[in-house]
Amino acid sequence: MVISNTAIALIIAVVVIILLAVFFSFVPVMLWISALAAGVRISIFTLVGMRLRRVVPRMVINPLIKAVKAGLDLNTNQLESHYLAGGNVDRVVNALIAAHRANIELSFERCAAIDLAGRNVLEAVQMSVNPKVIETPFISGVAMDGIEVKVKARITVRANIDRLVGGAGEETVIARVGEGIVSTLGSSNNHKKVLENPDLISRTVLAKGLDSGTAFEILSIDIADVDIGKNIGAHLQIEQAQADKNIAQAKAEERRAMAIAKEQEMKAQVQEMRAKVVEAEAQVPLAMAAALREGKIGVMDYLNFNNIKADTDMRQSVSRLNKDDEN
Rank of each mutant, 00 (worst) to 15 (best):
L206G: 06
A207N: 15
K193A: 11
V165M: 07
P131W: 07
N231I: 06
E326Q: 04
M127G: 11
A287N: 13
I18V: 10
D325C: 13
I33F: 14
S81N: 06
S187W: 08
S220C: 03
D199S: 15
N189I: 07
R51V: 02
M50I: 00
V27E: 07
E135M: 07
I297Q: 00
A70D: 03
V29C: 13
A175N: 06
V129H: 10
E148R: 11
Q78H: 06
A259Q: 13
V205Q: 02
V68R: 06
A310I: 10
T204D: 10
Q78V: 00
I18G: 05
M59G: 12
V173C: 08
V14Y: 03
Q237F: 02
M300L: 05
K309W: 09
Q249T: 14
A252G: 11
D324Q: 12
Y83V: 04
P131S: 04
D222C: 02
E80K: 01
A259G: 12
E239L: 15
A124V: 05
L47P: 02
T204K: 12
D90L: 09
R255T: 12
I97D: 00
A113K: 09
P28Y: 10
K152S: 10
D324R: 07
A113E: 08
H100K: 11
A289H: 15
L52S: 04
M59A: 15
R320D: 10
V165Y: 04
G141T: 04
D90V: 06
V173I: 15
Q249H: 12
V55R: 05
Q240R: 13
S107M: 06
L321N: 06
A113R: 09
G295M: 05
E294A: 13
A21F: 08
S212I: 13
I134M: 09
M288G: 03
K208N: 00
I308T: 08
E109R: 08
E265W: 07
I11M: 11
N246H: 12
S187D: 14
